[in-house]
Design a binder for these strands. Structure first.
Lengths: 134, 134
DNA sequence: CGAATCTAAAGCCATAATAGCCTCCTGATG
DNA sequence: CATCAGGAGGCTATTATGGCTTTAGATTCG
């Protein structure tokens, strides 16, 4: 969980960038999507750092997909934008870090772990191409 | 998207309530889960309003599942707690409400609609029983 | 029955995180 | 070197999270 608007905006941007074959600048994207320009700029920068987008400075610069749409999955996108894999619960990824002394006998950790696995699998199997095709 | 901690806490509570066969009060649940008592109380009230939980006042009162775990799906839970179906984007559920004059020719709506459908389907097909079994 | 007690329900207020705004800096282009 | 667009940081507004208090319904006991 913990999926915020940043992930939404990232996906929307990727859809537009996928259709536009030349780089689009953040200003154009924010106008097209009616999204806060500065917030979107940070999101695009995150996507660039994650190697999902290429960024180009200067005249006619902007952002463009760095990968094929079929190679861009939503887990990657949300992780890049949220700064981490959207975690169901802080303790879910690793039992070792559990602050509780009940770590080894935690009654809900197995279920959280399962839920997290299902969410991750869903996001990982959903690519940008899946959203564009069919 | 727009899935917050409230949904997490709701799921955690349901898992515990599923295992405890007599009603648990919000105070006990908040201690078991190390969650803010007052915030959890509001979440439990939402789940009660959505007919997912029964609530009992007075001595030995608390909350208990109203339905069978296999009949409680995550779309229902998140909708109840977030106050609405977690929407990818405001315009996604209905094209009619689109504030843009490009409604009928919106270049991303079809993709948003598809994404929303996939998320809804995933959540709707994931029941509390699924998290407890296997 | 009536009082005391238990717990949900509902409101208001404080804090923390997210979303959005603005300005300056950096690198690229012509 | 003038201009364009990304990079980075600080600041504000909005929303989410959490705390606290009061009210209301249910139970127990005398």
């Amino acid at each position: 969980m913990l999926i915020t608007r940043a992930s939404e905006y990232a996906i929307l941007s990727l859809i537009l960038l996928c259709k536009a074959k030349s780089p689009m600048d953040s200003d154009t994207l924010s106008r097209e999507l009616s999204i806060s320009k500065s917030f979107l700029a940070k999101i695009l920068q995150s996507l660039a750092k994650a190697e999902i987008l290429n960024s180009y400075k200067g005249v006619n610069g902007g952002f463009a997909l760095k990968k094929d749409p079929k190679d861009i999955d939503m887990l990657w996108v949300t992780s890049a934008v949220e700064g981490k894999v959207p975690a169901v619960f802080e303790c879910a990824p690793s039992l070792e870090d559990c602050p509780s002394d009940k770590a080894s006998t935690c009654s809900i950790w197995p279920f959280l772990h399962k839920l997290q696995g299902k969410i991750d699998l869903f996001l990982a199997n959903l690519t940008l191409a899946d959203l564009l095709n069919d």
